[in-house]
């Protein structure tokens, strides 16, 4: 296979980074992101590829025979869990390695993958209600509690999307949502329809707790991505404590 020219290396590295960044945004483990970028660059004939990824940044250097090296970096700011897009991106990167798609093809495929819409807002609101109802019963709540918990779940989704317009700090949003949830559950119990504020809140708390970040952090740690694993782990624990505190603070009001 002929070696890469500098121009080609820069183009392919750019698309490899696009895919890697999109994967990280969807909630992929760091190992998967690094592996995908390395495989894509190697498939196009790089001599050596060094990738370093943490939650907020990707750095890749490609080495080739006709040029010395080529480096690109990305700053990755936010995370939104999107597992179906992650699956699509994973499939795309496999196909790139197998068929060595042209840059235009990769760009077109990426555009298609990223334009798939998520579930509409109304469905998400319903999911919040169903999840809090399910976990309220799961942890031993009564049927009345289940209904109240579902109603508060709807309120939480509305509050969350409202707060997200004003602030991008997930810790603050979670704390405010949790406090609102705690307040509403206490109100529901004192006004009549709920049995136990604890059962209602436990149903709601499961909505906000970062289960995905927690599971991913464990997998990052054991696959030796210590920095990312620890960062995600601490993030998840701090968030979980903030949420639980938010729910209980409402008991004082």
């Amino acid at each position: 296979m002929p070696g890469l020219t500098r121009q080609e290396a820069e183009t392919y590295l750019y698309y490899a980074m696009e895919i890697g960044e999109a994967m990280l945004l969807c909630g992929a483990e760091v190992g998967r992101v690094e592996d995908s970028i390395r495989r894509i660059c190697m498939a196009y004939g790089a001599r050596r590829v060094d990738v370093f990824t943490i939650t907020s940044s990707i750095v890749t250097t490609v080495y080739g025979d006709e040029f010395l090296s080529c480096t690109q970096t990305r700053r990755v700011s936010s995370m939104k869990n999107n597992l179906s897009m992650l699956g699509d991106l994973n499939r795309l990167s496999r196909e790139i390695c197998e068929w060595r798609l042209s840059p235009e093809e990769i760009a077109a495929r990426l555009k298609v993958i990223q334009s798939v819409p998520g579930y509409p807002f109304s469905v998400q609101v319903m999911l919040y209600a169903v999840i809090s109802a399910a976990f309220c019963v799961f942890f031993g709540g009564s049927w009345e509690d289940m209904l109240v918990s579902a109603a508060i779940g709807v309120c939480l989704k509305l509050a969350e999307s409202f707060l997200q317009k004003g602030s991008s700090n997930p810790l603050l949003i979670a704390l405010l949502c949790a406090a609102a949830g705690g307040l509403l559950s206490n109100l529901a119990v004192s006004a009549g329809p709920g049995d136990s504020a604890d059962s209602i809140s436990i149903g709601n708390i499961m909505l906000l707790i970062p289960g995905m970040a927690f599971t991913n952090s464990i997998r990052d740690i054991f696959s030796k991505d210590m920095i990312t694993g620890l960062v995600r782990f601490v993030e998840a624990v701090v968030l979980a404590i903030a949420i639980a505190l938010g729910f209980t603070f409402a008991n004082f009001l």
């Binding site: 869990n81 436990i202 708390i205 499961m206 707790i209 997998r219 639980a244 729910f247 209980t248 008991n251």
Partner: peptide
């Protein structure tokens, strides 16, 4: 893995601990 692990997250005891 992630969605299946959600029921195993100890949300109830975390809430009670904070309470």
């Amino acid at each position: 893995l992630v969605s299946g692990a959600i029921p195993l997250v100890p949300g109830a005891s975390l809430y009670r601990a904070m309470k």
